[in-house]
């Protein structure tokens, strides 16, 4: 079943669909697909509208293969409304990939990334540019990880519009580890939505989801994070933590953790905090002479910076920290 057929089958996203509960679905324009679907891959198992959209619109596929044992840094940029990127990271390879935003201003932008990470490979995928000028942006990732591989997925969302990142990860090999770090710095009517599903399909796999939101104005963020641990998967570790600071009365956040665990010998946690800037920290800074406005900026930057602190030093980390410093 091609992507167009599958999309017609599942229909437009609705709020009563679990994957779209928090999303302003009325903002999605009705698709007008090309006559034929160029990609004939079977997508009958795909359930996410946003994952199918670029394929149904005949997004020009871009494939990049990184050889075994290679080391590579690259920037990925989609110049069309719809993009489809296929990445194959070879065994023991090391890659740092920054995704740049589509600067073509249109009503909607949808990108899909299919990423296969070979045994013991290590890849850092990140994006931090503001996505101004696109009222509605979908970005979908399908990540398959082999044994011993490590994927660091880091993002900073800021700028106007509605954005949704969906991610389906499959930890197929023993010892695979995925770390997702999401920072959302929103204002005005901005809204950012995450729908993450991590499937632990092998023993001793690890996943970390860590999201932080700084919400001002009438902005809105949501985080729908699922972890599925298979029946044969012992010694799995997974954590999910979402911290939000509401900087205005009208901002809001919704968080939905889902854990489906079919093995007893695992460690899986989830947590969610929501509050304002710490009044004692604010007092401390101002009691040293720092004006309140500056003190608040220091505290919000510190809150954001902490998210990326555990990452090893790398050009990616440096880039992320530079963006945080400029907030």
């Amino acid at each position: 079943m091609d992507a167009q057929t599958r999309l017609k089958q599942i229909g437009m996203p609705r709020r009563n669909n679990e994957l779209w509960t928090f999303f302003p679905v009325a903002k999605i324009p009705t698709p007008a697909f090309p006559e034929a679907c160029a990609d004939t891959t079977d997508y009958s198992d795909e359930t996410d509208f946003a994952a199918l959209l670029p394929i149904a619109y005949n997004a020009r596929p871009m494939q990049r293969d990184i050889a075994d044992n290679a080391s590579e840094m690259a920037m990925l940029k989609c110049n069309n409304d719809f993009g489809h990127t296929v990445l194959n990271i070879g065994k023991n390879a090391k890659a740092s990939l920054e995704i740049l935003d589509n600067k073509v201003a249109h009503e909607i932008c949808a990108e899909r990334f299919d990423i296969h990470v070979g045994e013991n490979a290590q890849v850092h995928i990140f994006f931090a540019n503001p996505a101004d000028g696109v009222p509605l942006r979908f970005r979908h990732f399908r990540i398959v990880q082999e044994a011993g591989s490590k994927v660091f997925f880091s993002e900073i969302e800021r700028g106007s519009g509605i954005k949704r990142t969906s991610l389906d990860a499959f930890l197929k090999g023993c010892g695979a580890r995925l770390e997702i770090r999401s920072l959302n710095v929103l204002d005005s009517d901005d809204s950012v939505h995450h729908r993450i599903t991590i499937r632990h399909e092998a023993p001793e796999t690890e996943s970390v989801q860590f999201a932080r939101n700084l919400l001002n104005g009438k902005s809105n963020a949501s985080y729908d994070g699922s972890v599925v641990v298979g029946a044969d998967c012992s010694k799995v570790f997974s954590s999910q933590l979402v911290n939000t600071i509401l900087l205005s009365e009208d901002s809001s956040v919704s968080v939905k953790p889902v854990l489906k665990i079919y093995h007893d010998d695992v460690e899986c946690t989830h947590g969610n905090t929501c509050g304002e800037l710490d009044s004692e920290q604010l007092f401390y800074l101002t009691s040293r002479g720092i004006p309140e406005k500056t003190a608040k900026e220091m505290l919000t930057r510190a809150f954001a910076k902490e998210l990326f602190m555990p990452l090893e030093d790398s050009p990616a980390k440096k880039r992320l920290e530079q963006v945080v410093d400029s907030l």
Partner: peptide, 16 residues
């Protein structure tokens, strides 16, 4: 004294 993770001690002193 309050802990403020993420705000570097020296940068804080200079700012103050």
């Amino acid at each position: 004294p309050t802990e403020i993770p993420g705000v570097n001690n020296v940068e804080f002193l200079k700012m103050a």
